[in-house]
Simulated assay, not measured.
Amino acid sequence: MSNEFVARSLDEVRFWSRIMKEHSLFLKLGFRCEDTQLIQEANQFYTTFEAIENKANAFTIGTDPQTIKKFNEEVHIAVSYIWMFKRKVLGLILTCQLPGANNFPLLVDHVSREANYFRNRLTELNTGRLEPLPDAIIDENVFFLRIMADHAKFISHLLDPSERKLVDQANNFSQEFDQLLFQARDLDSMRPQSQTSPLLDQFLDQNRVSVTSLRDFKKTARELIEACRIKSIIHPLLADHVFREAERFLAIIDMFENSLTGKPAAPLQSLMLD
């Protein structure tokens, strides 16, 4: 128990509780008007995670670690419930019980994976069993590379088909991140022999270049959507949502790079412990 535990816990909860809150909104927007029970559940989750986000923002680096540990346990329960809700929705979609709804099955699976990631992170923090650096580098990149590949696919399918150039760009990013994910899984299957500093350093450098390009593409798309300069059915908040997740991935890559090279680790961008 230390200030580091408090800082890392608040960073994770502040970032991911906002993501969970927004997932609730996006799922609700994809339901049919007659899906009143699902809409109500999504609204309840939105309220729950908004309250968690506000509570996390009220804590500081000086908050008692035991208070944060208890808070993490409460958040873990909420995240487990939204994970179950997402998997239930996925089951309904895949068994054709929501015909005409607008939530892609891959999108629902995607948001459930993020909930599971958040849940696991809370468990690791509270038990003090964080992965060794070489394992964390591979596992985090496998997770986030798949997230980035999914984002590119969602953008491609939510842009109007007449936006041919942007659709092509999104499809190219999808292919690029699929390849990076395959490479990451190859590195994963070769461990522990693959976990040398030179290989991991090159792995991070290569991913950083691609994630930076995708982040910049998302930033441009967000600005165009907000200015109503392109045709799509992408909610402006969704455009900002996927941009923030790319920023998060880049911050994690930089943190790993600093740890590998012995440089002081910079805080994640979402960390605000005033």
Rank of each mutant, 00 (worst) to 15 (best):
S2R: 09
E4T: 15
E4H: 15
V13M: 08
W16P: 05
W16V: 03
L29V: 00
G30N: 11
G30H: 00
R32I: 13
L38C: 00
I39H: 02
Q40D: 05
A51P: 10
K55S: 02
T60L: 15
I61V: 14
T63I: 00
T63K: 02
Q66D: 06
F71D: 06
N72Q: 09
E74R: 11
V75N: 01
I77E: 10
V79K: 07
F85P: 01
L94Q: 10
T95Q: 08
T95W: 01
P99V: 08
F104R: 11
V108M: 01
D109K: 10
H110M: 06
V111C: 13
S112P: 09
E114S: 09
Y117C: 11
F118R: 03
R119L: 13
N120I: 06
L122V: 03
T123K: 14
T127D: 00
P132W: 12
P134N: 05
L145M: 04
I147K: 07
H151G: 00
A152S: 09
L158R: 02
L159S: 00
L159D: 00
D160Q: 02
P161S: 08
R164V: 14
D168A: 12
N171H: 13
S174G: 14
E176I: 12
S189A: 05
P192N: 05
Q193K: 13
S194P: 04
S197G: 07
L200W: 04
F203R: 03
Q206K: 13
Q206L: 07
V211P: 03
K219Y: 12
T220H: 04
A221I: 11
C228F: 14
K231N: 13
K231S: 09
H235Y: 01
L237S: 10
A239G: 02
A239Q: 04
E245K: 06
E247T: 15
D254P: 03
F256D: 00
E257N: 12
E257W: 08
T261M: 08
P267L: 03
Q269W: 13
Q269C: 15
S270V: 12
